[in-house]
């Protein structure tokens, strides 16, 4: 059986890349995060990635760190993550992005079970290596949810094949060597990485890190199956004078990104 996320990729295959929007659970607070998710979806985001706020996010730059800190101060934890997931999944295919320790703490089996029970399609695990994935692979397989691994421009061919073989749903290609955040341009290494990934697997490839506007989204959508945007949405909320202004900004950003993935020359 396929996940909603897999069916989404299937339905847009050959036509356009999908747009995935990220927000940490509980940011800026639980109730408002739902409105932000709604604004993302209203603006054309195809899938939602809910971040599990974590105290030591080594793959995240200052924007997402600040958002996660705020969420943590609001008391966001596993309960809030799954509730947010349930809401998002009622709108569009949705997944969780989390560092490994919160999963281990919650219990690998419990986490996969509650992910599935709340309509989640899969989990992005940026610091889980395939060597440490034994229990995760069997458990996610049993619950029918996707395992999304992040690969980097530095990942060598042999290892790339090993990682992509264990992934499902899609492969997350980190566009550059670095952490999440805004960049003035999308690294040229991204396209090369995507083509190297495609030599190892037929599952979809989505690109993340540093995509923040419609032009960049169009550029990436020309060669990838998915475009992932996080920091730019969060900044739109952080910089807005009020929540209502933030919601407008989020929706407009989503619209321009959605137009970008549709305008890409493929």
């Amino acid at each position: 059986m396929s996940t909603p996320l897999e069916r989404l990729f299937e339905s847009t295959r050959g036509e356009r890349a999908i747009l995935i929007g990220y927000i940490p659970a509980g940011f800026p607070n639980q109730a408002d995060s739902y409105r932000i998710i709604q604004a993302m979806v209203d603006g054309g985001v195809d899938a939602i990635e809910i971040g599990f706020p974590y105290s030591d996010p080594v793959m995240d730059g200052p924007i997402i760190q600040a958002a996660a800190d705020q969420a943590l101060r609001n008391g966001a934890g596993a309960k809030e993550v799954f509730e947010t997931l349930k809401f998002a999944a009622s709108l569009v295919p949705s997944l969780i992005m989390t560092y490994w320790n919160p999963i281990e703490r919650y219990g690998v089996e419990n986490f996969a079970r509650d992910l599935a029970a709340n309509g989640g399609s899969g989990v992005i695990t940026p610091d889980l290596t395939i060597e440490e994935s034994g229990e995760w692979i069997s458990t996610t397989t049993a619950h029918g949810v996707n395992r999304i691994y992040v690969v980097a421009p530095s990942t060598q061919e042999e290892r790339l094949a090993k990682v992509t073989q264990q992934g499902s749903g899609f492969i997350y290609a980190a566009s550059l060597m670095g952490v999440t955040g805004l960049r003035t341009s999308v690294s040229s290494g991204a396209e090369d990485l995507v083509s190297r990934i495609r030599k190892t697997t037929s599952i979809p490839v989505a690109v993340g890190l540093g995509v923040s506007n419609g032009v960049q989204a169009a550029e990436v959508a020309a060669y990838a199956d998915g475009v992932i945007v996080g920091s730019a949405f969060i900044r739109a909320v952080q910089e807005a004078p009020s929540l209502d202004a933030g919601l407008v900004a989020v929706r407009e950003l989503a619209e321009s990104l959605a137009a970008g993935v549709r305008s890409a020359k493929r």
Partner: peptide, 20 residues
Amino acid sequence: QLGHFGPFGGRFVPEALIGA
């Protein structure tokens, strides 16, 4: 070989660091 001491140790890092 993977740096495990019983159930402890190992590597939980972004793929970007594996080469290094």
